[in-house]
Nucleic acid binder design. Structure first.
Lengths: 220, 220
DNA sequence: TTTATTAAATTAACAATGTTTAGTTATGGG
DNA sequence: CCCATAACTAAACATTGTTAATTTAATAAA
């Protein structure tokens, strides 16, 4: 069965190549401005070949989107730990925004690109996305049990925090933060995260400060 | 000059008709899925006619986008008053999200659609958008002078608040809040605004409550 | 080795898109 | 009535996603 195996490998290598190339192109010009022919030309195959590996252009998107959700999940897993839930949230938020700004096209595909809504469930990116969301929820819960957050509906608070970082990331990605000079963007982001946690916890100011001083650099 | 005048009227009426029709179609299927031919067919003219009134498809988008910014600005003007800056913020936030969810296609064109970045400045939708942002900033300033907010960089706080409501609106519009049952969305939004202001101001809890009780219904 | 079968890739075409050009029809002034 | 200008359209163009027919390459069978 050595041959069959090799063929399978070649097949998945080809898929990888297409995905990698597509992503590189999307990143530069955006999903809608890249054609199947562009991708084909880059990898020096005919356009029709791509259809041997992906049903259509959308399926390339779906695959990349799922990849993105997996990447993000891994990232969240490493930055969210419940020992110090507040610090954890801060790091998670920073990681989230960093991910979005370092992989704008991934982020775009995941959260900003309008896709046929039917397929959102079919492509079950929800499953893995939901896992990320659960991480966040647990973190929020921990904050509540430790008395760092007011006791509210966990879903509401989690959604709020998610909305917050998503808002920051997506405004910047879409250059709607264009009002601010480029070099201020980084401070802006840090400041925003500050704002949320700061006013959240003037009571717990000491705890907050401790986590702020240990925080890692945002590299954007 | 009566004739010339009438012609001009007819010309702008035609523009209106095209815009109105385009918007209706965009709302249903999204900008990228609507063709010039679709619009033309709807208004019973030939596709080429549209190019007599708009340079290209994008210019229709730009025009609608500018319209959107004006609408939003008017809305913000009426809901933001500085007598009670905290209540003002809350109403402004609600109005913002309502606008986004009631006019998803406008909102999409304004903040979520990827457009050629060059044209962002050319189409100077910035001017009017900036005015909205200034309203918000003034409101934030007022909160600070009244001691309702910690004294931080006004831009950072304003951007934060903007990010927050934008995050909520855009996640819902892109059905990324799909994890929650439809009927909970409304509560979710209210709860989120609660969250932000609540934990913001447990100190000023009385003020907050006053504005919460008087708040108008979100009709989504 | 030669032939048959299967897989991989390409060529050429399709319909649909945004856009342009050349031409036609209508309108108003002389 | 004739002409100039405006309004409009038909027909074409290049480019898109996608597919069907066909060729080429790789494997299995003889």
């Amino acid at each position: 069965m050595g041959i069959k195996e090799r063929k399978e490998n070649e097949k998945s290598e080809m898929k990888e190549l297409i995905l990698k190339t597509a992503m590189k192109l999307f990143l530069d010009k955006g999903f809608n401005n890249i054609t199947i022919r562009n991708i084909a030309e880059k990898i020096e195959y005919s356009p029709a070949t791509i259809y041997l590996y992906f049903k259509n252009k959308d399926e390339i998107l779906y695959t990349l989107r799922r990849e993105g959700f997996e990447k993000l999940y891994e990232l969240q897993k490493t930055s969210l730990n419940t020992n110090d839930p507040l610090k954890s949230l801060l790091k998670g938020g920073e990681a989230y925004i960093s991910f979005a700004l370092e992989n704008p096209e991934y982020y775009d595909l995941m959260f900003m690109t309008r896709g046929p809504v039917k397929n959102i469930k079919e492509t079950n990116f929800c499953d893995i996305g939901l896992k990320s969301y659960e991480l966040l929820k647990n973190n929020v819960k921990e904050c509540m049990t430790q008395g760092l957050f007011p006791r509210m509906d966990v879903d509401i608070v989690a959604f709020s925090l998610w909305s917050y970082v998503h808002g920051i990331a997506s405004l910047i990605i879409r250059s709607r933060g264009i009002i601010f000079p480029e070099e201020q963007v980084n401070d802006m982001i840090k400041g925003s995260l500050d704002f949320m946690l700061k006013i959240n916890h003037e009571k717990n100011w000491d705890i907050y400060n401790k986590s702020m001083n240990q925080k890692t650099e945002l590299n954007i």
